[in-house]
């Protein structure tokens, strides 16, 4: 098995674990961590898969740097929202008390 393929497959497995975590776990911080795992898996695939053009390729590494900045911003926003939500309700899960607030695709299935 070639190295780029190994990286890509590892990334795919991590993506799967992250997705399962996002759907299956209830605690909001865990959901956020699962999203971070998915993000890292994506970066791994982005850098790993592009190696077959004569050695390491600098472009995806630059992209991943940008991607990390974006994911830090998103994580920070998520943490702020979760903290404020916890302060207001004392809850760490998304369960809706109002039935019309809509079904959530990530909550009840797990």
């Amino acid at each position: 098995m070639s190295t780029p393929l190994l990286y890509a497959l590892t990334g795919a497995v991590l993506w799967g674990i992250g997705l399962m975590g996002l759907i299956g776990l209830r605690h909001l911080l865990r959901k956020l961590l699962a999203l971070n795992l998915i993000g890292s898996a994506t970066f791994l695939i982005l850098v790993g898969l592009a190696q077959h053009h004569n050695g390491p390729d600098p472009v995806p590494q630059a992209l991943v740097l940008t991607g990390i900045v974006v994911s830090i911003a998103a994580t920070a926003l998520g943490v702020v929202l979760i903290r404020r939500y916890f302060h207001l309700t004392g809850r760490t899960e998304l369960e809706s008390e109002v039935p019309e607030a809509g079904r959530d695709e990530e909550g009840h299935s797990g």
């Binding site: 909001l28 999203l35 926003l77 998520g78 207001l88 809706s96 109002v98 607030a101 959530d104 990530e106």
Partner: peptide, 11 residues
């Protein structure tokens, strides 16, 4: 309620 909607939207 707004924070819950925002969090769901974010995820």
């Amino acid at each position: 309620e707004a924070l819950r909607a925002a969090l769901r939207y974010l995820l």
